[in-house]
Design a binder for these strands. Structure first.
Lengths: 205, 205, 205, 205
DNA sequence: TATGAATGAGCCTTCATTCAT
DNA sequence: CATGAATGAAGGCTCATTCAT
């Protein structure tokens, strides 16, 4: 991130513009893919000029990092609040899944980029933070499952596989979710939880 | 694909080399990502020279198509055999999931590339075939679920969501599967089926 | 043509440089031939760098089009003025031929390129305009001949062949004309007109 | 030209194949242009294989030379016969022009190539022969005109310009001649001679 | 602050030619 | 004789980034 101006008045405008740039980048990256997006595309999407753009970013890759940072930090913070609060494991699972999928739905672009460009950044030091946040999110979900097991509420044949399955469902959602589709994020989250907990087998009552 | 030599003896060698090239490309694409892979990387991975490589491929993109084609066609064929054969919906579900995950495990590189580069090709006519195969695979899985419902074996709250969930689990597997890991492909497949059917909720006996 | 800058001050400079680039290209294309001219040759001829050159052109072929466009449009405009003005068919013929050969003499490079690279562009849509201009020029010359016939001034055995003959003479001139040669463009034009009108046969007075 | 086989039986076949190759090359060069013609195009046009082709030629450029040599030498020989024979200057002019345009009509491909690729070869030593032949042809035509002047039959205002005009007409013919067109080569030749001698001016009888 | 011209390394691809088989 | 695999230089072009104005 370039050093922003120090005078508060200017700083505010700078921050706003930087935020616009990052949002536009997320949109374009998601549409075209990071590599296929040129700086030209970004200046078209932001309305800035070539040189102007570089007042707000250090480079294309830093912009990708910014897009992903923006994505994962608030989600992780929200989930930590949830698990720090009261509730059974099942309630926490549902709440976290809802928060997660609300995030996926609200930042579909970012999520697609996140899933897609993992490899692009894997060796970049700036990526470490995002990677850590990802691990933390997985650990948090895993913790909920473990607590449910300890409390006797969940009994997965293979706890780790159950976690991976849940992650798979959730991550994949960004690929097919449509904002005006039949289901909203909350319904999807609840549906995933119901599937994970009870499965689809027909049972006698 | 360039026109292969006509004489059978040479044809065999050519085919073998082409297969090597495609396999090497899948490996490198999966490691580095398609866009980040240069022709230089490919000649290093194949041991061919710059010009020699072009005896076996028409270009970088055609190579990507080849990698993906190689991936999905045999899987689809195998799955069609399964659903054409005898068995309950649950048996078909398990068999198809096993075949699918065996494929994912055996072609992890290809699968990662497939998930990653979807967007790269989305507007390319050559992509249509792969896209269609993907849709067919989803439809096939969906058909099994529907049959299970019709036969009274499955009772998902939302059949379409159940399908998306299963696809999410399976696709995501390529991202974390390790050939020398704790679980092999069959165990994972059976685990996914168990999860999808029965969930993880602890139940009184 | 790349999009030029919008600010008038910069626009002027850009236009000037673009014109220099096109002129240099005409020179080099004429000397070496279009195909044998590399981008390297063009950057040497313009003094720009590889990337800098591409600020003013969209590609090598667009540059060829630009060279040819620059050639034919002003000539056609001038000729249209002439035939729209007063004068007998013979006077028009002489005036148009003079304008034509002045053009050939002034833009010998362009003309050689035009004659040489016809085939290069023949299937390119961008070529349509140039092709049309060429046809228009032929039609214009043909119109003068026809008018002369109608008015009883000319009596060619085969009017179409006479037109082709005149076109042949004129076009061929670019191949041998030397700016410091014995004849200037006007003398050549008048010479061609005299030949076309009266031939070279010795006649009794 | 590669060294042909020495044994007469093989030599005959070799010569025939070489001739086929040159003819095919003329055809393809004229259609596509020399530079735009790849060796691949030539093997497609000849039916030979890549390596096989190189048994009959030394390279692409040598093939171009061969095409042009084949073109100009027989024409020059025929014209020399004509001027060595009996007849007035006008008769010689007509006969040579007829031979020339018959040649143009019969070898339109070669002629187009000749006009187009002049520049390609201009610095090549192998080109010297063709260049010389071209000069000889011009000189031969010029000689006829001069003889006509000396004998009092022709009275051009500018003899050299008359020569250039004739050359222009003739060379240009390759660009528009159609074998199934309204005029055959002889008619065109006679038409050009008539134009050159008498012009198109309407005269009182 | 903002502009857009300029940079130049690097990209994918083509192609005439050679040579082991 | 004939084959076609292999060569590798050179081609045109893109693009993230810098910097004088």
């Amino acid at each position: 991130m370039p050093t922003p101006p120090t005078r508060p008045a200017l700083r505010a405008r700078w921050d706003a513009r930087r935020a616009e740039v990052v949002a536009a980048a997320a949109r374009v990256f998601a549409q075209r893919g990071y590599h296929a997006t040129s700086i030209e595309d970004l200046i078209a999407a932001t309305g800035l000029t070539r040189g102007g753009l570089y007042h707000y970013i250090d480079g294309k890759q830093e912009l990708l990092i910014a897009v992903l940072d923006e994505l994962i930090d608030p989600l992780l913070a929200r989930c930590r609040e949830i698990v720090a609060g009261p509730g059974t494991a099942e309630e926490h699972l549902r709440a976290v899944t809802r928060a997660w999928l609300a995030h996926v739905a609200a930042h579909r672009d970012h999520m697609v980029v996140f899933n897609q460009e993992r490899r692009t950044l894997e060796r970049d030091p700036a990526w470490a933070h995002i990677r850590a946040a990802r691990r933390d999110f997985e650990a948090l979900l895993g913790g909920i499952l473990r607590r449910g097991i300890d409390e006797g509420a969940f009994a997965p044949a293979d706890p780790q596989l159950a976690l991976k399955a849940l992650l798979g469902m959730g991550n994949h959602t960004a690929q097919w979710f449509a904002p005006d589709g039949r289901l909203d994020a909350e319904q999807i989250a609840d549906g995933y939880c119901a599937l994970l907990l009870d499965g689809i087998r027909a049972r006698a009552r």
